[in-house]
Amino acid sequence: MSHEAAARDTANTPDDAGQRPVPFRGGGFVHRPLGPVAPVVFLAILALWELGSRSGFISPIALPAPSAAFAALADLFKTGMLWKHLGASLYRLALGWTLGSLLGIAVGLAVGLFSLARAGLLPLVSALFPVPKIALLPLFIIWFGIGEGSKVATILFGTFFPTVIATYAGVDNVDRGLIRMGQSFGLGWLSIVRKIIVPGAMPAILSGFRISASIAIVLLVAAEMIGAEFGIGAYILMAGALFALDQLIAGVALLSVLGLVIAWLIGKLEKRLLSWRM
């Protein structure tokens, strides 16, 4: 008892006998969630930008004022063209991305599961993945026409390859121990694929979705270069051709919002499908 008390005493009086606190060396290197920083930064940049434009510091040829871009957006909304452009783009995105992802998952699973498919397809996928799909546009026009075909095809091809790679990498990363467990309990091949390999590859496939969705949006502008009357990409291209920078910025903002919404949706999907992880 007395020993303890003494210890406490000395701890409370650090000056005695030259004692001092151990210097603190921890902390840092940890991200704290800081709620509203992003919107504040965003609004501050917008305000600075507007101020620069109003004062003439930023030439209107270099960048239109945010208010001008907002006015262009408002015009789009008022004339109802917004929905026409959005509708056309969303249709192409949805169709191209869905088909590209489904095909990509199918081929990715084949590459992940069958040696023959891996030997035959993987070099092909690796060779075609880095080809800019924009370079293939003239071919797509001949193959798929200047209607919706070539636009959907551009997005499909753009999303197909990253999905293949994400899927087969996901399959490769499935815990071999789980597969062995399945075999040891006499599960059928299809059961192992369906119940062990596909769910096990799902995190990789979903993060592949994030990438392929972004690529799809990037390719939207390229896809709508050809014969598109409506679509956000076509609107941006038209604004560029007319040097209507306010419309250009408005269109780019629409693409950003689209990207954010899609990222949010994929986040929701991840939460649903991967709730077992965290």
Partner: peptide, 21 residues
């Protein structure tokens, strides 16, 4: 008259030759 923006002259030529426009 349905105008089809095709960005570049070669693309227009290809589309015309193949009957896409």
């Amino acid at each position: 008259i349905h105008v089809k923006p095709l960005q570049k002259v070669p693309a227009v030529i290809a589309s015309l030759k193949s009957g896409q426009i």
